[in-house]
Write a protein that binds this DNA or RNA. Structure first.
Length: 160
DNA sequence: GCCAACGTTGGC
DNA sequence: GCCAACGTTGGC
């Protein structure tokens, strides 16, 4: 295992892009465009290839961690910021100094039983998770190694 | 669909 | 540099 491999959680609305969509993408890989929050962007800039990612369904019934992906490409400019026809267009960003980045993530697995937000809240060991903090809305957030292990265990997922 | 919490913008 | 107004996120 690579030293210092890190763990993250990324949110997506399943009606927009679900973990099934990721699994069915070419090479089971997608670029994570559209992030327009500086904190989330900064976390993506810290990512390394091979970092592990919990795939979280937000605005879902129920909201839940549904599986695992991994970082396949480190941060690079999100082209949608320059696309006037895109929802994510940012008139204040210029190609010589792109404001917004994205990473590529690759599908790894879908949990047999997804872990609802409710279930996660019931686990004392996960009290500190960024996801569970009051008012937390970050769409890209760090997960500690111990939180990663606890969630995996709750999911009954095979550790590889 | 509501609205609390949070981030961003822009007037001053 | 303060802060009110506004927009967005995302659980419920």
């Amino acid at each position: 295992m690579a030293q210092g491999r890190r763990y993250w959680l990324m949110k997506s609305e399943p009606r927009v892009f679900s973990i099934d969509d990721l699994a069915q993408s070419p090479k089971q890989t997608t670029c994570w465009d559209g992030v327009r929050n500086y904190q989330a962007r900064n976390f993506m800039r810290e990512m390394a290839v091979g970092d592990q990612v919990f795939f979280y369904h937000s605005n879902a019934e129920p909201p839940a961690v549904v599986g695992i992906a991994e970082v396949a490409r480190i941060a690079y400019p999100d082209q949608t910021q320059f696309d006037k026809t895109s929802h994510h267009y940012d008139a204040a960003s210029v190609p010589s100094a792109p404001r917004w980045d994205m990473v590529d993530i690759r599908y790894r697995q879908t949990f047999n039983a997804s872990l609802s937000l409710d279930r996660l809240r019931q686990e004392p060991k996960l009290k500190g998770m960024v996801l569970l903090q009051k008012g937390s809305r970050l769409s890209v957030q760090p997960v500690t190694e111990s939180e990663w292990a606890v969630v995996l265990k709750l999911a009954g997922a095979k550790v590889s």
